[in-house]
Design a protein around this nucleic acid. Structure first.
Lengths: 268, 268
DNA sequence: CGGGGGATTGACGTAGCTCAACCCGAGTGG
DNA sequence: CCACTCGGGTTGAGCTACGTCAATCCCCCG
């Protein structure tokens, strides 16, 4: 079930200069701090959606303000409840955004990819993080303070508008999730979640679309508001129908159409 | 309570000139189109959060662009799937924002009050409304086109930032809802929803905090991702515990603390 | 080779859905 | 003024999707 596949080298996120053997599709080459060179940093920012309106020279100027930092897979980047001191942009790696509930279970709101941002959006209202962020893979994070971000918005109104559009998009997607949780059974929520992940984190391979982040059944359960066992049963069923494949902490989507039918089906 | 622009009688925003008998706390005096005079319109916009950064003269100029329109209780203001041609601000009344699902059930995302906005945020991506808006009471709505709105954001960067903060706030609240739906039983979701409504639409009376919008059990069910019968049972229980009161399509919160305990309790 | 973390599977319990009957208060029309 | 109706609300009696608990498996790593 597991095969060695060579990593395809995407220029904008490739911090890894050496080719190495991989065991699993999601075993990425390690992302090392020293790979976040100023040049690379600028390249990443240039491709970051909310900075898209900026010119090359503006990007260069803005890049100065960002602090780069490296996180190993599994470590906490920010914790809900802590003072919110940074707005972070993902340069490389994937990050799990979650809310811990009072009774100990975790709710995963999203898995973010390079170019996405998280953290404190503005110093209004909440001066603390409302979500916990965990490095799902090794990560390279660029961060500025909320004050710097605000001043950035003031200096470049186009950035404010771009950010507004991004946040509006996030709100849309949150609303879709609310609809899912309110109205659809777990099976459909899992199918919808897989489709969404495939679209945002998927890499096409001969075998199907590999979701490029290590994802456990528990993660999937926390994303769909279900329990591990339930998700496991559903994934077994999906595998039986040859809709998905995968192994320990990784998933490949084999049949997009089939999953889409899953999502729609109950609309009988 | 700062929120309440229209229903308490303040000289500059009063749409209702006569005092009349009320049957129920939510039987509001009718809001008539002719009450949305230019002066009143400007007064409303002055108090609208996302225009807060503007000066008096700017407000006056901006006010010119808004089209005012009246909707009777129960009528559709916009329908999900239609071409998105307007961004709307509520001048008076309350509006129910919902997503109809393929299989016919409705998911209510929010109930909005005067000063809140809805509709098309930007002409990016989705050119259609993703939500349906229904006048919960008689309503006076001010609207501009997405193009006008965008130009407004460009002319007044402070407005863009204010809007960003508002949308970020909505995202926060959507995330809270996702947490609720994922992790907490219906009883707690109902309690949390009532608290939220009380805070945003509540008017203090001798008897408790009256939620100033007609709200059926069905509405409450659609807001909590539950079924009418379940919500009805829970509300009966809450009434038995003297946490809430009310009648046909109206609710009064009697015991805030008690409800808060309800929300927290299961965190045993 | 042993240990541990993830995944799977089964047996069983229950929160909340479904279906169905019934109530009640407010308009409406005679 | 009453009678009728109708939309909303309540309550009960099953049913089921999903959670809970527990055993087992199976990689993967030391």
């Amino acid at each position: 079930m597991e095969r060695d596949i060579t990593h395809d080298v995407r220029p904008e996120t490739c911090f890894n200069t050496r080719m190495e053997q991989r065991r699993r599709p999601t075993d990425h080459l390690p992302i090392r701090p020293q790979h976040c060179t100023p040049t690379v940093l600028r390249a990443v920012l240039r491709r970051t959606p909310f900075l898209a309106p900026l010119s090359e020279t503006d990007i260069a100027r803005v890049a100065e303000e960002f602090q780069q930092r490296h996180y190993e897979a599994g470590t906490v980047i920010q914790r809900a409840g802590e003072m919110a001191t940074r707005l972070a942009v993902i340069a490389a790696g994937t990050v799990k955004i979650m809310r811990p509930t009072l009774d100990g279970q975790d709710v995963v709101l999203d898995i973010l990819a390079p170019g996405d941002f998280f953290g404190s959006l503005a110093q209004l209202g909440e001066p603390v993080y409302t979500e916990t962020a965990i490095a799902q893979t090794d990560c390279c994070i660029l961060a500025i303070t909320p004050e710097q971000f605000r001043s950035l918005l003031e200096r470049y109104p186009a950035v404010a508008i771009a950010t507004l559009e991004l946040v509006a998009g996030r709100l849309q997607s949150a609303n879709r999730t609310i609809e899912q949780l309110s109205a659809h059974p777990v099976e459909q929520r899992v199918a919808a979640t897989l489709l969404n992940l495939a679209e945002r984190l998927g890499r096409r391979e001969e075998d199907g679309i590999v979701i490029e982040t290590p994802l456990s059944r528990q993660d999937l359960a926390d994303m769909t508001g279900a329990k591990v066992e339930t998700v496991s049963r559903i994934m077994s069923e999906f595998r039986r129908l040859d809709l998905v494949g995968g192994g320990r902490r990784w998933i490949v989507v084999r049949d997009l159409e089939g999953l889409r039918d899953m999502v729609t089906e109950a609309a009988v």
